[in-house]
Design a protein around this nucleic acid. Structure first.
Length: 516
RNA sequence: GUUCCUGUGGACAAAUUGGUUAAGUCGUUGCUCUUUCACAGCAAAGAUUGCGGGUUCGAGCCCCGUCAGGAAUACCA
């Protein structure tokens, strides 16, 4: 155990956890596993206006489904709690005050309305308003107002924020593990709010204070945070925490499957693909959606797929168990460029996992799905069906969907082949063959095949004269598992029943063909 | 607009850190196997490494410029 390595995943409970967030969690997880460090879950709920009930539960359930375990966090415990920022509210004021006392922050009394008006005015001149080292000299804050006025305003309970006093004419160097050196000029930085009017800290303050207090060693987060990292470094400097400042690694974005821009919920709706780990139940139906889980993805496959969106091990191995992945993982092999979300590749990963999984295990996973359909079958039967179907589908539920004929009568016969090849005269031979097969002592695939072969030879028939019709009669389609294995699975009684219902239907198709 | 980030076949990407003919995977197409489909195996097509200069015996990699895309620019995270 390496107690120097402490990482945190810090989602905000403002809605469902996006797949990009899942990947961030995964990289944090993999790195701590690799290093033998500690993984912390911290809930960043400092904005009560955006708080969404159920979001935290959703995050927890997603992470649990995916199999990523945390060492510290809400509901888990740890020596650095509480792990919800709303429960740490009383902590942050002191640090904001420290910033004021050291001259690195100031009180600002400008109202939100005034600032919006200011922004609009700048906008109309095609300029962008920024609360910074220049504009703050014209605004209502403790730098421009007299000491007495500030005092009376504070004492009378005037609403205020505390803003970071970004110094002029300096450079801030970020040494990012994935980006290398990135330099920002402080003159380009705005005076970010540290403490909001409601007394809550902003992300920037809370994040730095908590990362320091929780002894975080590495911050692995999305690229969207890179621009504000300069502010964060300034904060570490002002607090005198530079020695223990964490190392940063900013992850590339996950891009939408086609077109430009980052992957969004809309892409999921439009393309009918999952963009979230698990389903989200909203009050309004149109706000609800399915996740990878409901699509039938296996959690390990999702993780494997996600891991390769922006990282690769440098070897040709692509299928990794979670421990193997952790072993192979390293932050400096994370790529800089955004990675496009490719559903085909995700499906491929899932199929690989499906094929790799034991049939009996798949049988167990199929059980609830079969129950949903009221299929009364044994575990053994589900295992057999799984063994026959798993190479032919991408997702577990498809075994039941496309292989429905293992559980209920054929719904529809594929007419094309019947029209092309069916001949009512063929019936006699087919039924005769089936009768012989039915009377075989062992109704078992190899025996069935061997007997069929001799029968066909004796009667001058080929496999092609028999195969498609049996197949369609049993499953409705010419695609699917090996015929004799299907027969064995269904059993002699069911096979006979299906032939007897199918052949008259074939005749009908044939009659229509003649008439038209 | 400004700041920052990023550009290698359709997608993900590798390239021993400046060294010869730019890996591999997904996808596409074909073949083999299986008288089906899928899996598997084999093969093919697909790239002037965004573009233009420069340095060098030699550039995907270093330098300059340029273009494109993205992110940030909230009392959101």
């Amino acid at each position: 155990m390496n107690d120097k390595i402490r990482l945190r995943f810090a989602p905000s409970p403002t809605g469902a956890l996006h797949i990009g967030g899942v990947r961030t969690a995964l990289y944090n997880y993999l790195f701590t596993q690799k290093m033998g460090g500690t993984l912390i879950l911290r809930i960043e709920d400092t904005d009560q206006t955006r708080y969404v009930p159920g979001a935290e539960t959703y995050i927890l359930e997603s992470l649990r489904w995916l199999g990523m375990e945390f060492d510290e966090g809400p509901g888990i415990g740890g020596d650095f709690g509480p792990y919800r920022q709303s429960e740490r509210k009383s902590l942050y004021g002191k640090y904001a005050q420290d910033l004021i006392d050291s001259g690195n922050a100031y009180y600002a009394f400008d109202t939100a309305e005034e600032l919006t008006a200011m922004r609009e005015a700048f906008e109309s001149r095609k300029e962008t308003f920024r609360y910074d080292g220049i504009t703050r000299q014209q605004l209502k804050n403790s730098l421009t107002l007299s000491a007495e006025e500030v005092k009376t305003r504070l004492e009378s309970g005037d609403p205020y924020t505390i803003r970071l006093k970004v110094p002029r004419d300096e450079e801030v160097l970020i040494n990012d593990i994935v980006r290398g050196e990135v330099v920002f000029q402080t003159n380009e930085l705005d005076d970010k709010i540290m403490l909001k009017g409601d007394g809550m800290p902003t992300y920037h303050l809370a994040n730095i204070v908590d990362d320091h207090l929780m002894k975080i060693s590495h911050v692995v987060r999305g690229e969207e945070w890179l621009p504000s990292t300069a502010h964060h470094i300034l904060l570490y400097r002002f607090f005198g925490w530079e020695d223990t400042m964490p190392q940063f690694a900013h992850l590339p974005l996950i891009l939408r499957p086609n077109g430009k821009g980052k992957l969004s919920k809309r892409d999921g709706d439009k393309l009918g693909i999952p963009v979230f780990p698990i389903a989200w139940e909203a009050e309004k139906a149109e706000d609800s959606f399915k996740g990878f889980r409901e699509f039938g993805f296996m959690p390990q496959a999702v993780l494997n797929f996600l891991a390769f969106l922006g990282w690769n091990p440098g070897t040709e191995q692509e299928i990794f168990s979670l421990p193997q992945m952790a072993e192979a993982f390293s932050l400096d092999r994370i790529s800089k460029a955004g990675a496009r979300f490719d559903f085909d590749k995700a499906s491929w990963f899932n199929q690989q996992y499906l094929i790799q999984t034991e049939n009996a295990t798949l049988g167990q996973l199929l059980k609830p799905l079969a129950k949903e359909k009221n299929y009364e079958v044994t575990d053994e039967y589900l295992t057999i069906v799984a063994s026959m179907m798993k190479e032919r589908v991408n997702f577990l539920p498809d075994i039941i969907k496309t292989g429905y004929y293992f559980f209920e009568p054929v719904r529809e016969y594929e007419e094309k082949m019947i029209r092309k090849k069916w001949n009512p005269d063929r019936k006699t031979a087919l039924l005769a063959l089936n009768e012989q097969l039915e009377n075989l002592p062992d109704y078992q695939a190899e025996k069935l095949e061997a007997h069929t072969k001799t029968y066909l030879e004796a009667n001058g028939l080929g496999f092609g004269d028999v195969f498609p019709f049996y197949r369609i009669a049993l499953s409705g389609t010419t695609k699917g598992p090996a015929l004799f294995e299907m027969m064995e699975a269904l059993g002699r009684a069911e096979v006979k029943k299906r032939l007897l219902t199918a052949f008259p239907a074939f005749d009908e198709v044939f009659a229509n063909k003649i008439n038209s």
